[in-house]
Design a protein around this nucleic acid. Structure first.
Lengths: 119, 119
DNA sequence: TGACTATATAAGAATATTACTATATTTATA
DNA sequence: TATAAATATAGTAATATTCTTATATAGTCA
C-alpha cells in the first residue's frame, strides 16, 4: 500500500473535535480537567464498566487529548494541555446562549458554572 | 414510538462538537467567522460542488452553529455566535502545542495566526 | 510460580456518518 | 407560463463509530 494521504490541518482539527464528540468523553474530560485520576476512579465516578471507560480513554489518548502514566498496577490519566479546560469553558458559554430556551439543561449548565473545576 | 430520551447536557455538548468534527465544516466556519457568505461564495472559495457544500451547511445549521437567511435567489450563511470564533482560536492554540513537532502543519497554523479573520 | 487486580484490546453486530448522484424547490425573469 | 439560477433534499452504497461481550496483558504479592 502507498503512504497515507498528506495530513492536512483541517483534518487534524476535525479529528481533534471528533475526540470530544461523545458524551462519555465529555464527562471524562470534565473530571480530568480538575485533576488526574485513575481508570478506577473515573469508572466509579461515572458508574460505567471498565471496558467502556478504557475504550473511551483510548480514543482521547489516540488524539493526544489526555496522557496516561502507569503507577504500580493502576494507570493515572491527565489532560495533556490545560487549554482543553478553556475550550470547554468557551463551549459552555456557547451552549448557554444556545439553550436560552430549554429549562432543564440550562439549570444544569448553571450548576457547572457555579462549581468550577477544583484542583 | 415513545418520546425521545431526555436530552442530557453532555449529549448536547457532544453533538455540538460533532458538528465541528469534519474538515469541510471546519473550513466553512473559518470562512464564515470572518463574514457571512452565500453558498455560491463558499462553494467557490473551497472548490467543492454545490451539493457537498449545501449538505455540510445543513449539518452546521442542524446544530445551530450557523444560521441561514434568504436573499433573493441566494442564501446567506453566518455564524450564529461569535464565540465560535473564540472556540476555534483556543483550539488553534491547542493544536499549536500539539504539533510542536510536525513541520508542515505547524507552518500552516502560523499563517492562519498571522492572518486573522477579517471583517 | 500461581492467583489476583487493574487495565487494555479484540471481535462482531448495531448504528451513524459520509460521499456521490440524482432530483426537487424556490425565486427571478423573459 | 417557461426557463434558468441557486439551493436543498432524497437515496444509497461505502465507511466509520459505538456497544457489548470476551479475552489478553502487566504488575503485585502470597
Amino acid at each position: 500500500m502507498a503512504g497515507a494521504a498528506p495530513p492536512d490541518l483541517q483534518t487534524f482539527k476535525a479529528d481533534f473535535f471528533k475526540a470530544l464528540a461523545h458524551p462519555i468523553r465529555i464527562r471524562l474530560l470534565e473530571l480530568l480537567r480538575a485533576r488526574a485520576r485513575s481508570v478506577q476512579e473515573l469508572q466509579a465516578a461515572l458508574g460505567l464498566d471498565q471496558s467502556t471507560v478504557s475504550q473511551q480513554l483510548a480514543v482521547l489518548r489516540g488524539k493526544n487529548v489526555v496522557g496516561a502514566r502507569k503507577e504500580g498496577t493502576s494507570v493515572r490519566y491527565a489532560v495533556r494541555d490545560p487549554l482543553v479546560g478553556d475550550l470547554l469553558d468557551v463551549a459552555r458559554r456557547i451552549f448557554n446562549n444556545q439553550l436560552a430556551g430549554t429549562r432543564t439543561m440550562l439549570q444544569e449548565l448553571r450548576r457547572e458554572a457555579r462549581r468550577p473545576a477544583r484542583r
